[in-house]
Simulated assay, not measured.
Amino acid sequence: MSSQPGAKVTIGTIAAEAGVSTATVSKVLNGRSDVSAATRERIQQIVARRHYQRRGGRRRGGIVDLVLNELDSLWSIEIIRGAEETLRAAGVSMVLSAAHGSGAGTSAWLEQLTARRSDGAVLVVSDLNLRQRTKLTSLGVPFVLVDPVGTVEAGVPTIGATNWAGAVAATEHLIGLGHRRIAHLAGPRQLLCSRARADGFRAAMEAAELDVPTGQVRYGEFNDESGRAETDALLDEAERTGLPLPTALFAASDLQAFGAFTALRARGLRVPHDISVVGFDDVPIARWSDPTLTTVRQPLQAMAAMAARTLLRLIDGEDVDLPRVELATQLIVRDSTSVPRQDG
């Protein structure tokens, strides 16, 4: 298909040349995955050859920043996969930065983002302070938050998961197996997702008219070291007070659950024969651990993909009228849970 010199190139122009609908072209431009590889490639070639620019678009260098607290966790890897696939499909490069959990003070990631004139940012950080938000806004850099710490000001798109419902499902699974003494290894108190999971645990226990004794909800970090330390503290407390051990643990992350595995084995306790364990996230290793881990699947890749697609719309000047989006979690039952021992 040819066009007159100087003629404006539109989505309709691209669609006609590619032999597809304008909706299909829009899906490719927004990084949607529901387009065949051959069609996507054909459209992207036409877009590049015709130097198409979207109306109201603000793309400068075709670069988007993905900022995470840390880059080396199993959780982070799933987020990276989801964002990278979506951005790559849209022809946008992704730069990774680590915030190292420091929301306050000088932010190296923010200075680097400014220096390379990034088009936007997907932020998966434990805290985003007022100074950082103001700087991003003043630079005209759109951003989307994934699993923010707490309440977010109006107008900032956020992508999360149904943490409360996932925790309820995990706890109800244990109660359904016959467990009555269940402890919770919670995440950091300041994180909204941690509080939602702890609240979901308590809600399910209350609905079943089961007590949660003092000390049976222990706040820590989303890592295996914390899971091991809090499990040790839980067992030490039971030994010191003479109270019976819990027959089940609900951990707020898979890594905490793996730490609990280690602590329990060191005490000669078997999972699930002596104590059942449930995690949260469903990182890939959960299906290969020994025993395989019953957990709540958090759609990490889908969360990151949606955040990336939302960011691309913001970059291209589209109106995004989204409240906080929460994607559904799902309980995955494996070998780390069973009915309690008859003497438990």
Rank of each mutant, 00 (worst) to 15 (best):
V212Q: 03
P213K: 13
F250L: 09
D254W: 03
E225P: 05
A266Y: 08
D274H: 11
A208H: 08
F222Q: 06
F250T: 01
V283L: 02
F222I: 07
V278Y: 04
E221L: 11
G215F: 08
H273A: 15
R195Q: 10
A203C: 10
R218Q: 08
T262N: 15
V278S: 01
E206D: 12
R265P: 11
L234H: 05
A260S: 14
F222Y: 08
G220R: 05
Q216Y: 03
D236G: 14
D224M: 09
A252W: 00
P246D: 03
R240G: 11
A207G: 15
A252C: 09
L235R: 04
L234K: 02
G200V: 06
A208N: 09
A207Q: 14
C193L: 07
A196K: 10
R240M: 14
A196D: 14
R267N: 14
R202W: 03
I275W: 05
G242T: 15
P272L: 06
L255F: 10
R240L: 10
D224C: 12
G200K: 13
V283T: 00
D254A: 01
G268M: 08
F250A: 02
M205H: 04
A257Y: 01
A233G: 04
R265K: 15
A257S: 06
A238K: 07
P272R: 00
A251F: 04
Q256R: 07
D254R: 01
S276T: 01
H273E: 15
D254C: 05
L269E: 15
G200N: 11
V217D: 04
E209N: 12
D236F: 06
G268H: 07
R197E: 03
V217A: 01
R267D: 14
D224V: 08
R265A: 15
F201E: 02
P244N: 12
I275N: 06
A203E: 14
S253K: 08
D199A: 14
C193S: 15
A252G: 07
S194E: 13
Y219N: 11
D199Q: 15
A198E: 10
A266G: 15
G215R: 10
R267I: 06
L243V: 12
G227Q: 02
E239M: 13
N223A: 06
E237V: 05
A198P: 08
G242M: 11
P284K: 04
L234R: 04
P272V: 01
T241V: 11
L234A: 00
A203G: 10
A196Y: 12
Q256W: 12
D224L: 13
G259L: 14
R202T: 13
N223E: 07
Q256M: 13
L234C: 05
T214M: 07
D236P: 08
G279R: 03
A233V: 02
P213Y: 13
V278H: 00
S276R: 02
S194V: 06
P284Y: 09
L249V: 03
E239Y: 11
T231C: 05
R202G: 01
R218H: 01
R265Q: 14
D232R: 06
L245Q: 11
R265H: 14
L235T: 10
Q216C: 03
Q216F: 01
F258N: 11
E237Q: 13
D199I: 05
G279Q: 00
P284M: 10
S276F: 02
S226K: 03
L249K: 02
G227N: 04
F280S: 00
V277W: 07
T214Y: 12
L243A: 14
L235K: 09
L234M: 02
A251L: 03
